[in-house]
Write a protein that binds this DNA or RNA. Structure first.
Lengths: 339, 339
DNA sequence: ATGCGGTGGTTACACGTGTCAATGACTCGT
DNA sequence: ACGAGTCATTGACACGTGTAACCACCGCAT
């Protein structure tokens, strides 16, 4: 009694294997494998084919992916380490698109949060899955040692997307500096000099915001002031309240969402946009056009998901030791009414 | 020569296995396994432990997840079939949150696009991964046969999130009708009668928009008119242009983004909001508060990612045959200025 | 009878891991 | 000196699959 009552749940019934199918069809396991994979090299008579198929159907047999890829020696897994902060709408639709494009090429996308792990630990965890490719989005900056670990674990392509390349990996260099530079240049062109740059208070966005800031700084004729701000109405209001004391005539916000937030707060303070202060964001979100005045922005030419996916596919087919660098992401300022 | 030149790329060096580690450390493979998994049942002397660890380190050994879970007989994979349309910011941040929460509980999240596959085919593909749990978001509506297939393949929990439950699965019923009902009720309360309901032209959102529409229809005293609209300025402008002919005094848009788009177009047509037409959206996006007038909305009480993740974890630990139904997602109208 | 080619199927191994049961070495108490 | 214990280590199997190599059979020409 103590035995039977110690656990109320009986063990689940075993999952049917190809051996079960074989038994039921009265053939060998090899035959089952040949039939179910439509092997052309081996000839199997039509009657047995039918028997096998029926048996598989009746048992509800589904092959075991892990066993299969163990045997095969490789997987079709593409690992996609995910940032834990929502990067923004532009990025997340891009990610979704990429995901689908990869799926279309018959890859399996595995998302992997790095959690609290250190870089090396995270990379080890990734390597355990034996992914055929890894696409790092830049939250974790890979060292060349990390790349080596992944390749040793069978990864045929390691692709980094970020502001800077990594030795040994395909680098999709997305130069965020360009974004800041275009924004600042646009403002300078329009006669502004003292430019505030809004930097998110939120953690995890430095990788994007820092280069954007640096880009703005690099523009001749612009005096840049750093303005930390959180993505919340109160933070924007607080910043707007002390605006007149700052002596600025323009502001470049991290992206359109921050820009919209701040612009609204500035207007509530009685400041006129663009007369007293010019506002420009980035990402060219649709909603930016709904405000009065319409928000000027920097449009970023992201690669399409399909494009990146086919690049991944290419890199997998033709792995190379050399560091290939692809410069992506052109940027251009879009003038609307807020500047 | 023809042999060596037919393929320019030499086969990649083999991935180090635990056997390699054992050889290098001068011990058996079993010992390696015990050391690297910190087995407590078996005692291994400190010197050998060191030797093994060093050998593993030098070789850059990383265990093979597939082999491990094959041996173990189960995985920690949670399958997350992903919709191919961006559902909206509210949903995608929720997904991201869920993803991280699951990771924290040591699950591996696998995204899987269903592609062009039929429901049954897609489910088979999922089952191949032997996931311990499947969270279906409603794009593919599971049949009870599908649920059975997944459970037979070892899934301990199948969870559906959508407007309706599925036999055999844990159902997180997110009653989108409630959203529409609250919106319409809010409008009726404020004296409006002839209500337009904006339905997205985009494919794939019917699962959300249809119940929201139905909910609006269910409210006594409301006359509902369906207004298809795409998420683009031109579409909104086109709708606004013929607005006066429609004889409506209020509009409930699918979500805040559509609402903002339409509201702006209506204003451009010279219509006064809320005097001539009341506008309400859904999702309570931050940007909705930046417009003039501030956008009224329906706030949706989504379960937090952590909450859902721990429910998944619970369901995995205590699988039950019965269909458990959890009603989630309360909704309430938030009055701002546009109604 | 003997060889021979084609047909339809099976036997046997490998993939990389975790773990049970067994083995050998060494110490201790009588 | 010898059985009784610890302690450290190992050999062997199982997990589910794909596939190369092999085998039995049949018809047919030598």
């Amino acid at each position: 009694m103590s035995e039977s009552s110690k656990s109320p749940q009986q063990p689940p019934p075993p999952v049917p294997t190809s051996a079960d199918v074989a038994r039921r069809a009265g053939v060998s396991r090899a035959t089952v494998s040949y039939v179910l994979n439509n092997a052309e090299a081996v000839r199997i008579s039509e009657p047995t084919r039918r028997k096998v198929r029926e048996a598989a159907e009746e048992l509800g047999y589904v092959p075991h992916a892990a066993a299969r890829s163990l045997r095969a020696g490789h997987t079709r897994i593409v690992l996609l380490p995910t940032p834990h902060v929502p990067i923004g709408p532009l990025y997340s639709t891009f990610l979704n698109e990429l995901q689908w494009a990869l799926r279309r090429l018959d890859y399996t996308v595995v998302q992997y949060g790095s959690l609290g792990l250190s870089g090396d630990e995270a990379v080890r965890a990734w390597a355990e899955l034996r992914p055929v490719a890894v696409i790092s989005l830049g939250e974790i900056t890979l060292t060349s040692h990390n790349v080596a670990t992944l390749k040793r674990a069978g990864a045929r392509a390691v692709i980094t997307m970020g502001p800077v390349g990594v030795p040994g990996a395909h680098a999709l260099v997305m130069d965020q500096q360009e974004v800041g530079a275009r924004a600042a240049a646009h403002l300078v062109e329009r006669g502004r000099r003292r430019i505030g740059v809004v930097v998110p208070r939120e953690q995890g966005l430095e990788l994007f915001s820092a280069p954007r800031l640096a880009g703005a700084r690099s523009v001749a004729g612009a005096e840049v002031e750093v303005l930390p701000m959180a993505y919340a109405e109160e933070s924007a209001a607080e910043l707007a309240a002390r605006w007149r004391g700052l002596g600025l005539d323009a502001v470049f916000a991290y992206n359109d969402e921050y820009a919209m937030l701040l612009m609204r707060a500035l207007q509530d303070e009685g400041l006129r946009v663009p007369e007293e202060v010019a506002v420009i964001g980035a990402d060219d979100l649709l909603v930016g056009r709904l405000l009065r005045p319409r928000l000027s922005t920097v449009r970023i030419e992201m690669p399409t998901g399909d494009h990146l996916a086919s690049l991944v596919d290419y890199a997998v087919r033709e792995p190379s030791e050399v560091t290939e660098r692809h410069d992506l992401m052109a940027a251009e300022a879009v003038h609307r009414e807020s500047t």
